[in-house]
Amino acid sequence: MDNNRFLDIKGLNVSFYTQKGVVPAVRELDLWINKGETLALVGESGCGKSVTASAIMRLVPSPPGKIESGEILLDGKDLLRLTEKEMQEIRGDRISMIFQEPMTSLNPVFRIGEQIAEVFITHYNMDKKGALAKAVEMLDMVKIPAPEKRVRDYPHQLSGGMRQRVMIAMALSSPNPGLMIADEPTTALDVTIQAQILDLMRELQKSIQMSLLLITHDMGVVAEMANRVAVMYAGRKVEAGDVYDIFENPMHPYTVGLLNSMPSNEKYRHAGRLEAIEGNVPNLLEIGSGCPFESRCRYAEPLCREKFPDVKEAGNGHSVWCHFAGDIKFI
């Protein structure tokens, strides 16, 4: 089973050294993605999901950030041991990334056709004309209407949804697209456009057998896209498993709280108060060795404050990090 893993993260620790102290942004994270599958990394702001993505790309801003320890194996090769030059070859080739706001990752002074063509020129040694023709093809693939006209547009002339399509086209232009990391790819988009982009991503992923790491805070997007789900809270993975297990049989109080906080949850169909998680996300500077969710957990016991729980397995790859997983009856 292990050699089916395209990306395999083991014991990743990332910290940020700020003026106020050391922020443990990601702690002891294990995460893997099989070839061709979609893993959704879910959590709220500050849970470490975006830092994980930067760590995979080796783009954690340093200083203040630092990858303390761990392994990030891509097809068996540890990315953390590569030289910067070797890593550059992997970025944009084996791993590509799309962001929430595509405007920041597109260069505003170049036409989008030139920017896509650039990928073909660097990775395939194509001439400019051939590369531009390829760019048109790629825009067509991501269903941008009138691609031969659009290649001459500048980024600001496109709508948000179109720009995200361009980013996807660029990500897929590399010779060996193996993993796409999508960091909140539809958060800035309208719902109808979000649906289009999600559909497009799903379709393309199927046709080129690519792995997708989808980072999002939106459980609705997760339900729609993911094969497997990992839930993070305050730097720790607290629950992971198959999408159906996570949604239908959540075992960590935080996952349960998150699902209950969704106004689109079936049980609020006809009004009523939400079952909110009380309190606020803890300050990572003050987090102890215990379970990070302890301060907000209604089932917390003294033990939770002292010790971060060991993993509990519930079968089918469903793992939970909670001392009382399986013992709690959620109402």
Partner: peptide, 9 residues
């Protein structure tokens, strides 16, 4: 009680 948790320091 809850709000104290994150901010007592």
């Amino acid at each position: 009680k809850i709000f104290k948790a994150g901010n007592d320091a």
